[in-house]
Write a protein that binds this DNA or RNA. Structure first.
Lengths: 188, 188
DNA sequence: GCTTGAAATGTTAGTCACTAACAATCGTGC
DNA sequence: GCACGATTGTTAGTGACTAACATTTCAAGC
């Protein structure tokens, strides 16, 4: 349970960072600049965000995803289980689909090092999916292949959403991405 | 055309780095240690390798891959074109399948920051594939989804190869990875 | 053998992300 | 007003990387 003061400081840092990133680019702005703009010491920045990229990339690991994968029929091939699981976990609800989220995604899509941070953050989700499938007797490599392919497609949709027209919903792009991985002729 | 002296120095740095990485781990060994062990200045290290991770992660971009994708029948869905293209480019030839390559892959598989470097390196290949498909009239997002999914599966196979039994060939694992993305019931 | 000239390396000094240890301050409960 | 914990500041340092300039190596020509 974070203190109100903590939340205020964190919000100030986040605002200052987003502003500077959009004005001069991610790699061109230093943590010192962000701290200055937020009226804070660089040290305080790192107390609220473990790394510079954590301002934009929050680890999206959600145990619900692994659960949703595990809930799919066990007799399906691994890829199809992961695909349907992701679809049921992400294809519907769209958590924080506000303008700020979109600004962040757009920034991430522009920087190679930020995209790398996203792929690191996704590894936790992949790992959780793999463990779930392995527990059901699926070969570990097959599980890793299925999970990484589906998550890569989902990430591609997420990054595209950052610069997509405003009326296009993230859930729509995710469904479109996963539809491409469907067995030939499938309609769902 | 690199000078013989350049090649010798580069090889010394590479040997020293591999040795230290395997003995004390990647993140625990500094560039200074590598330079010392190679009888060289840290500055010289960076003249031969742009970054610390470049010792292990060489950008595998090969224009042949994009060509192979473009050579597949244009009436196939994007995912299938990319899949068959990768299969024809990687499923057969196995360039440098020596013990050193395997040691490097095994090291990469252990470090999150190195895996991130791999994913950055793969982006060039993905970009090339996407451009090829877009030139054929494929939607850019569909192309990105297909390319990233196939490359993620291939990368999963590559990382698994690093710790696989010695008699398992990389080409075999790649074929297995891409087979999982095949339309239901396909045999090739 | 000696010189010349370019390629390769060394030197120095710096920036930036990030960390550890300890001191100062803020704010809430009493 | 006072104590106490949570938050922030200070200082000093490490490690990856860069830029500018000086120095060394080494092969080719005389």
């Amino acid at each position: 349970m974070p203190t109100p003061r903590t939340l205020r400081t964190r919000a100030r840092i986040l605002d200052a960072a987003l502003d500077l990133f959009e004005r001069q680019g991610y790699s061109a702005t230093t943590v010192n600049q962000i701290a200055d703009a937020a009226g804070v010491t660089p040290m305080t920045f790192f107390r609220h965000f473990p790394t510079k990229d954590a301002v934009l990339v929050t680890d999206p690991y959600d145990p619900l995803i692994a659960d949703a994968v595990g809930a799919q029929p066990a007799d399906l091939p691994p890829l199809e289980r992961v695909r349907l699981g992701l679809l049921s976990a992400l294809g519907d609800i769209t958590p924080t689909e506000d303008a700020t989220a979109r600004r962040r995604v757009a920034l991430v899509a522009q920087s190679p090092s930020l995209r790398a941070a996203v792929s690191v953050g996704t590894e936790a989700t992949q790992e959780a999916i793999v463990e779930r499938l392995v527990a059901d007797g699926v070969d570990r490599l097959d599980a890793a292949i299925a999970a990484s392919a589906c998550l890569a497609a989902t990430t591609a949709a997420l990054l595209a959403w950052g610069s997509a027209p405003g009326d296009i919903t993230l859930a729509h792009l995710v469904r479109r991405a996963l539809a491409q991985l469907a067995p030939a002729g499938a309609t769902s």
